[in-house]
């Protein structure tokens, strides 16, 4: 543990400041609370919003899991974990069940989260209305007035052009029937997991200096029309080549020798758990 820095890197004043913004975010589900985002020792745009939330919340008893696009061992996840454990000494884990704090980039874990866990999502672009309104001053007004026709029109135009909604990750959601929110670039597959989630979900955008939240047991609906329903990514007829799971988000991979396409679990720790379980059952 690196003693030349304060516990969890920040000075205590900075931590309190971030916690105050977080409390406000929890009190107003889906509302983007501005905060004085600090510069971090990792790239601004590489998860500094999530990292600031993690560092402001972490205590000595916490167990931390960090995932990057589903993987615990991805270079950036490893890097963030290392920074947090260097400055706090807390234990890290790959197991979703064991973790109390889970910082994630662009995935909600497959294992359902529980009440005593907090999921922290890293957010590159927190403003769901930014694609049609570049000005922050204007989008703030649109949110205040609950003026979301732009967001609906964006989806409507996609239907006119492509006969389907053409959003990929970061499909906008309505939180608590009030604020339209960017769920961060999680795949559409993960959007339903936000709805009435047992765990607190915090979203941090470091570069854009915003914190927002989905408190536990909050209604979260993906924007869609009655006749054009919201659809998650389809993996019909595919399963994980390692563990055989079907109802999970899969990575599409190409076998370099045969050129054939195959699929593999994106959530690597969940995949490993399932494989281990199967093997231990097999031994019996």
């Amino acid at each position: 543990m690196n003693k030349s820095y304060n516990f969890a890197f920040f000075d205590e004043g900075s931590k309190r400041e971030i916690r105050r913004a977080t409390l406000k975010a929890i009190a107003i589900p889906g509302y983007q609370v501005p905060f004085a985002s600090r510069e971090m020792p990792i790239g601004r745009g590489w998860g500094t919003g999530g990292l600031q939330l993690t560092l402001s919340l972490i205590g000595k008893e916490d167990v931390l899991k960090v995932i990057d696009q589903g993987s615990d061992e991805s270079v950036n996840a490893v890097n963030i974990k290392k920074l947090v454990s260097d400055t706090t000494g807390v234990r890290t884990t790959d197991s979703t069940r064991e973790a109390t704090l889970i910082q994630s980039r662009h995935r909600v874990p497959e294992v359902p989260l529980e009440q005593d866990q907090i999921l922290i999502l890293q957010v590159p672009l927190p403003e769901p209305l930014r694609s049609f309104e570049p000005s922050e001053h204007e989008t703030k007004k649109l949110h205040a007035e609950r003026e979301y026709s732009g967001a609906w029109l964006m989806l409507f135009e996609q239907i006119m052009k492509y006969k389907t909604m053409a959003t990929d990750a970061d499909h906008p959601v309505m939180v608590h029937d009030r604020y339209v929110m960017a769920p961060s670039p999680i795949p559409r597959f993960d959007n339903p997991k936000l709805d009435y989630s047992e765990a607190l979900i915090l979203l941090g955008a470091g570069r854009e200096k915003k914190v927002y939240a989905v408190p536990p047991f909050t209604k979260v609906t993906s924007l869609a029309f009655d006749d054009y329903e919201f659809e998650i990514e389809s993996f019909t007829n595919h399963e994980c080549i390692l563990c055989g799971s079907k109802d999970v988000f899969l990575d599409e991979l190409v076998d370099q020798d045969t050129g054939a396409t195959y699929f593999q679990c994106n959530d690597t720790s969940n995949c490993l758990d399932i494989v281990n379980q199967e093997q231990s059952l097999g031994v019996k």
Binding site: G43, T48, D168, A169, N266
Partner: peptide, 24 residues
Amino acid sequence: GFISHLKMPHYVTFQSKLDSIRKT
């Protein structure tokens, strides 16, 4: 920071985009 973040893996978001393009 934001320019360099483009070097990070975007496997999930890209998969999601693939799905969307195939659908259209």
